[in-house]
Design a protein around this nucleic acid. Sequence first.
DNA 1: GATCCAACTTACAGCGCTGTAAACAACCTG
DNA 2: CAGGTTGTTTACAGCGCTGTAAGTTGGATC
Lengths: 341, 341
Amino acid sequence: MKKVRLADVAKVAGVSMKTVSNVVHNYPHVTPEMRRKVQLAIDELGYKPNLTARRLATGKTGMIALAIPEIDHPYFSELSRYIAEEASLRGYRVLVEQTLNNLAAEQAVLNDREAGLVDGVIFHPVRMQSMDIAMLRRDVPLVLLGESTMPVTADHVMIDNVAAARDGVRHLLAQGRRRIAFLGLVAGDITGSTDQRLLGYQQGLLEAKMPLDPHLVFSAPDFSPEDSAEAVQRALASGISFDGIICRDDRFATGALHALRNAGSRVPEDVAVVGWDDTELGRWAAPSLTSIAPDKRELAATALEMLGERIDGLQGIGRHRIVSHSLSIRESAPAGAPVLL
Amino acid sequence: MKKVRLADVAKVAGVSMKTVSNVVHNYPHVTPEMRRKVQLAIDELGYKPNLTARRLATGKTGMIALAIPEIDHPYFSELSRYIAEEASLRGYRVLVEQTLNNLAAEQAVLNDREAGLVDGVIFHPVRMQSMDIAMLRRDVPLVLLGESTMPVTADHVMIDNVAAARDGVRHLLAQGRRRIAFLGLVAGDITGSTDQRLLGYQQGLLEAKMPLDPHLVFSAPDFSPEDSAEAVQRALASGISFDGIICRDDRFATGALHALRNAGSRVPEDVAVVGWDDTELGRWAAPSLTSIAPDKRELAATALEMLGERIDGLQGIGRHRIVSHSLSIRESAPAGAPVLL
DNA sequence: GATCCAACTTACAGCGCTGTAAACAACCTG
DNA sequence: CAGGTTGTTTACAGCGCTGTAAGTTGGATC
């Protein structure tokens, strides 16, 4: 089957190309008769506009790129879903790029060796610092996600990580937990995300006049549940005791759950566990995870809105938006009567 | 910052556009001196080729669309990851389209009202039947995923669902399970996927001369863990007893796990549970899920390979490829000594 | 030194669409 | 009925790149 072009339709309908184009775009000033005639030709030939040509002519691609570390990370896959939905609401299609926690891949996203592919980029960096991002001269609107430290050259959406971590700690304290651990340091994670969460953790403890024990801050070599399980196991093995733990994400919390179970600790009786991201992974864990819940829908909507404004030409330094978060309380750290120790 | 075009570089370097293009494309027959001169101009101006223009000129987009029901379904998000990786290996970028278990959205994917956006489509239908797919005249290469019933008009990759289900049943039988349930019917799921799994389930029982009890086939109103939990709970409540259950996917199995736990049944002691898809959700469930494991990497690679061949012009009727599967054995249905009942 | 060849470079016509400006038509005014 | 309006359609020049065919150059050949 040959490709049908606008010109072909025009010839068959006996009108100019532009009139066909007008019909395709539902331009109002076309006489009904003309419209009918053109539509007939379109249907007869099975004409479909060539998007690439349209893009070249208009300079708009109607596409945005979403660059995330891993598409199958529960948080990112859920976030992707909302971004995809919000994007489609606004007439955009989404091109997904995985950076796989890899610095070079992150740089490649911004360094775009090609142009004209997408109208804008939503990017969640893990390895790049905001300074690095600022250094690159870009020519595509960019919205940053995650906890990178306040870049001035791009818009940015995040939740208040300090407050969120504090909320988690408060929740544990309210149940009577007294030795609360933090699981979240990851080697090579220099985005400041962990810093902020750690800060909130400290604030939470300090405001309750609790001591700050550095032994209670665990770190893992990488982002997987396996790594986190190992970190918790090592802590347990070295005799460190704790009755609550707040984890940098649900994956980590899931790993912690496993390690605790293997060690014979009961959750939440012996140790209460708080996750982060409120993902399906945590909702269906056993016990189900209490988790800090960023409003992902709002996050996605805000990112798209800001990106849209930039695409529409808005200039100026980077704006920062905080979206709301809450605490989804489930079995691993229930609310209610404090546990007796 | 103004857009830099090929012509601008050519002017600065004092050569023709085509020579610049040759340098950009690493065309071998360019003298080193010329290459240097051009590269200098490219760097100085910060030239980036415009992909849209390139596409229009070449007719290739270098993009494929991946149309799946839900990007945040564990199976699909993991599959997406492999598809993205395999695609990038082959120089393709991936455009993700969610169909959200919605017939109209699935039709829209194939009905493409526009052309020239992608070179090919990988599509996992849930609501469309292969007849529907065959009816539509398409002009883009298409590879189907999942268990749709053997379309003749498009290539197709799947695992042997009948055999896989049978393997699951055999595994349960080998442990001494005698009342094995199947959880998988979903209203409106007409892809035949469930049919095949159900068939395998029956074959597994028959070859062991086990009776086939229709009460042991559970159905859920939709695809979520909530729905599945409810289905299992209802079965339990109505007094149906079973000591093994095989579920249409890990999400369903996760729901089943919850329902069983709430009902006080121990897994695997009282009921052994087998999931399907071998996702992270199941790997970190408690107890961790034994699950039928399609080789997702192979699935992705095969789909891309077939699509690539079609894109390169291969004609002919739809081909069908079966990729391998295995059984990932974990806590919910361990191997080893049969359970005494 | 004339001839030929291979290696390199250039000019230019598209790819299929849209925006602009201009042309044309029909309809009002006064 | 000339002149002004509004409404509708057309012609055509790009958008930025690549493929083709034609041109140029330097050196090997006899």
